[in-house]
Write a protein that binds this DNA or RNA. Structure first.
Length: 503
RNA sequence: GCCCUCAUCGUCUAGAGGCCUAGGACGCCAGCCUUUCAAGCUGGAGAUCAGGGGUUCGAAUCCCCUUGGGGGCACCA
């Protein structure tokens, strides 16, 4: 069977025996990758895997000031956690400095770039002037046509300088975006961008173009915040005499306030999602649906289905708001789909981490497994598993005693229920849900109470909660002695309440 | 301010001229199930397809304008 037509790029590449698809994820190590970055990585990965291509990882560490310790590990951890494996790299741009310097020099030779000695102070001044005149804050081109003698004297005297691109003052630059179609910019609205900084490091623009060419990248898929610098990149390719890759600018991911997603929107990094108990498959699935869809109904995809279904022409143009509630739902779906061993495997670390300190460690795995069985369909995120189950692990349970008294009952009635249950359960051979139920349920009728009332009393007595897993299953897992003692305690508390009422 | 870009329920989206009195999902509401909570099932509210002009026998779908949102305008990426 033939693969589907794929993307314009894919069908183009199909005729190009020289190379298959090569895409890259190229983050800068300035912090933990957030979901927007990772979504970009995911789309690149899906595109590569769908087309049998290559997925590269490149670290754009050309900003020495913003570099953050541990960021690279954070990036690779995040990718690995989501199962986004890369075929080449990571390549570090900081290891390739000579490449960019040579490239910048070559551009100067060709008259496509020039050296600029303007100080940061002067640039600031220029910006202010432009702002005052309500003009775009662009470089004024003072060094654009410097006398060669001035340039060489500047260099020999060691004056700090940068290399700027000599952006044409006329004409326009157009590129074909795979997602948006043709995009055109007036060259006159563009800046003389810095290519090589005074510290010898390239800017993003230069390094990006040089590397994508050097690494034979066929498709650049990145967030659409990059659209405005694409004309420069196109001009760079052309100045170097290289064929540009294809461009596909992905819609952005927004916060609930519709602004570009950032830290102030709360949890945004992949690590945070892991720590809050989201399953990688769920986040993977959810992220894939932010800016891409298959049809009008399918939402649940596993990894392979996504790889098979993913194409660029199904990528949308509109920015998407990251909706946590829907992620929660989807995570619940994935949690419920786990078999109990898998669920226990995922949940154990959260119990170890989040259960009260008073609970002895390590947590008894066999017991926890039984507890978790009751919790699975009730959990949306793993981080709530401890909270949902503390009463299974702590010795005593606390609650306002009023909660024992169900609607239409009083303290003495509650006592009657507990007394009767205690008696009924006394000689029980097996402390199992089934036998518990068959001995307790008849008590409702016997005392003229509803199951809701009777079970309600027992639930609060035994779990300290008004909401918990099914009562008899809970009692079975909790065990005879805990149940009995908690029932007894509840009985005594009603005693106090009873005498308090009388007195 | 200038440039680019986007525009369907609160949110994610389907829709590539007649199948749309606009479909699905999350969330919300109600009912069922039921010992509570979940889960599940059923039903419901929710979008005059941003507004206005065209084109067409016919427009959410094509064109133009307006408005609104987003992004960019650094020796950051």
């Amino acid at each position: 069977m033939r693969q589907d037509q794929g993307t314009p790029g894919a069908s183009f590449m199909a005729n190009d025996t020289a190379g298959s698809i090569r895409v890259r994820f190229a983050p800068s190590p300035t912090g933990h990758p957030h979901v927007g970055n990772i979504r970009t990585a995911l789309f690149n990965w899906l595109f590569a895997r769908h087309g049998g291509g290559t997925f590269l990882l490149r670290i754009e560490d050309t900003d020495t000031a913003r570099r953050v310790e541990g960021a690279v590990e954070s990036i690779t951890d995040g990718l690995q956690w989501l199962g986004l494996d890369w075929d080449e790299g990571p390549v570090f741009q900081s290891d390739r400095l000579p490449l960019y310097r040579d490239a910048a020099d070559a551009l100067i030779q060709r008259g496509a770039a020039y050296r600029c000695f303007c100080t940061p102070e002067r640039l600031e001044q220029v910006r202010e002037d432009k702002a005052r005149q309500h003009l775009p804050p662009r470089y004024d081109g003072r060094c654009r046509d410097l006398d060669p003698a001035e340039v060489s004297s500047g260099i020999t005297s060691g004056t700090p300088s940068v290399i700027r691109f000599k952006t044409p003052r006329h004409g326009e630059t157009t590129f074909e975006d795979l997602i948006r179609g043709p995009v055109t910019f007036e060259n006159a609205t563009l800046n003389d961008y810095v290519l090589l900084k005074s510290d010898g490091y390239p800017t993003y623009h230069l390094a990006n173009v040089v590397d994508d060419h050097d690494m034979r990248v066929t498709h650049i898929m990145r967030a659409d915040e990059w659209i405005s610098s694409t004309p420069l990149h196109v001009m760079l390719y052309s100045s170097f005499g290289w064929n540009p890759p294809q461009f596909a600018h992905l819609p952005m991911i927004l916060g609930p306030d519709k602004a570009k997603l950032s830290k102030r929107h709360g949890a945004t990094t992949v690590i945070e999602y892991r720590e809050q108990g989201y399953l990688p498959e769920a986040l993977f699935n959810f992220l894939a649906l932010l800016g891409w869809s298959l049809d009008d109904k399918t939402e649940l995809f596993n990894r392979n289905e996504l790889v098979k279904a993913f194409t660029l022409e199904r990528v949308g143009k509109t920015a998407a708001v990251f909706d946590r509630t829907k992620l929660d739902w989807m995570n619940g779906v994935y949690i419920r789909a786990l078999d109990i061993e898998e669920f226990a495997h995922h949940a154990m670390p959260f119990l170890e981490r989040d259960l009260p300190e008073s609970v002895p460690r390590p947590i008894d795995r066999q017991y926890a497994r039984r507890v978790l069985t009751l919790l699975q369909e009730r959990t949306k995120v793993l981080s709530e598993v401890a909270e949902l189950s503390t009463f299974f692990f702590e010795d005593a349970v606390s609650y306002p005693e009023q909660q024992l008294i169900q609607k239409g009952m009083d303290a003495s009635k509650v006592q009657q229920v507990i007394r009767t249950v205690l008696a009924a359960v006394d000689g029980l051979e097996k402390w199992e849900a089934e036998t518990l139920e068959s001995s307790i349920r008849p008590i409702c009728e016997q005392l003229g109470l509803s199951p809701r009332q009777v079970f309600g009393v027992l639930r609060v007595a035994v779990t300290g909660r008004t909401a918990a897993p099914p009562l008899f299953d809970t009692m079975e897992v909790l065990g005879r002695s805990h149940c009995l003692s908690r029932l007894t305690i509840a009985y005594r508390r009603m005693e106090d309440s009873w005498s308090a009422e009388i007195g």
